[in-house]
Amino acid sequence: MTVPGPGRRLRFTFDGVSLEAIAGQSVAAALWAAGFRALARAPRSGAPRGPFCAMGVCQDCLLLVDGVAVESCRVAVREGLVVERPERPA
């Protein structure tokens, strides 16, 4: 759902899938644009959660970016970034 326009394209992977982003876009926004909105799971029910506040408050977009847990709305995509959903504790 990203609007086509100027901007350098970058590639990154999400759970092993190769995706494209515009340079400068946040990981959460690039994933949203690619159709991935369910990024986390609710703590008790395990129901899907997705980016909600987009400003680093809700923690519902927490992902492993190059192995480090970060709010994906607050980190910009870089070429070759490896993004994964964290494994849920049993």
Binding site: V3, A29, F52, A54
Partner: peptide, 25 residues
Amino acid sequence: WTLPGVTGLAAATILLKSQKVLPGR
């Protein structure tokens, strides 16, 4: 309101203005 696809209005302005991403179709 916890379903993916629900965002705050301020979140939507960030997606739209800063990221050029639509909240939905």
